[in-house]
Computed example of a mutant assay.
Amino acid sequence: MLYTEVPSYYTWNAKNKSFERRKQSKPVDCQPTIFKDTTIGRLYIIHSSQHECFFLRLLLVNVSGPTSFEYLRTVKGTIHDTYRIACQALNLLENDQYWDNCINDACETSTPSQIRALFGIIITNCSPSAPTELWEKYKSKMAEDILHRVRLETSDMTFDFTSEICN
C-alpha cells in the first residue's frame, strides 16, 4: 500500500493517536473483513527546496509498504545514506544532463566568474539531483581565474590546482 492509499483503508483515531482499519464501507474483493472507502486524505505539499523532506515525501508516494525510514532508503538491498540518493537509485529524479550541457556551453563562451554564477543559480534554484558531480566536473573551469591570480601572486606559472583552490 502506498502512503496515499492509507486513508482509503484506515481512519485516524485521535484518542489513541493511531490508524485503525475501517469498519464499514465497501468490502475489498476476496477480503470480506477489509473495507475500502473513497475518501480524500491530506498530503501536505513540500517545496523542493526542503530537500530531504521533499525526497522523503517522494519516496512515500512511490514505495509500497514501507515499515521504517531505513526501508524507504533501501533500494535493491542497498541502504542509501539519504532520501535523495534513494530517489536517484529508483530513477524518481531527472538526471542532470540538461544542467551539465548548460554549464558545458557556458565554459565555451563565459568567464570563470560567470560560470560560477551560473552554477550558483543552478544549485539554488533548479535542484539538480547530483550537484557535487557537477561541481567536480567543472570546478577547474570555474577556478581558472583564481589559479591565474595565484600564479601571478606567487610568480610561479607552474603552480597547479590544489584542494585549497577548488574546495
Rank of each mutant, 00 (worst) to 15 (best):
T109E: 08
I122M: 05
F119I: 04
E108I: 14
K137H: 12
I115D: 08
P112I: 03
A130M: 09
S110N: 13
T111A: 12
S129D: 09
Y138D: 02
E136C: 08
K137D: 05
E136F: 03
S110R: 12
P112G: 09
A106T: 02
P112W: 03
S113G: 01
I121V: 13
T124A: 11
I122W: 02
E108W: 00
I121C: 08
I123C: 09
W135F: 09
C107T: 15
G120T: 11
K139G: 03
C126G: 04
Q114M: 09
S140T: 13
W135Q: 01
P112S: 09
F119N: 04
C126F: 10
P112C: 08
W135E: 01
W135A: 00
M142A: 05
K141R: 14
T132H: 00
L134W: 09
Q114P: 03
R116Y: 06
I121T: 12
P128H: 07
P131D: 05
T109M: 07
L118G: 10
N125P: 00
W135L: 05
E136H: 08
P112N: 08
A106M: 09
I122H: 05
S129W: 01
C107N: 07
P128K: 00
K137C: 08
N125K: 15
I123L: 10
L118R: 11
Y138N: 03
L118H: 10
T132W: 00
P131W: 04
I122T: 06
W135P: 00
R116S: 12
F119V: 02
P131Q: 05
F119D: 02
A117N: 14
F119W: 11
T124P: 03
E136V: 04
A130N: 14
S140F: 09
T124C: 13
T132R: 00
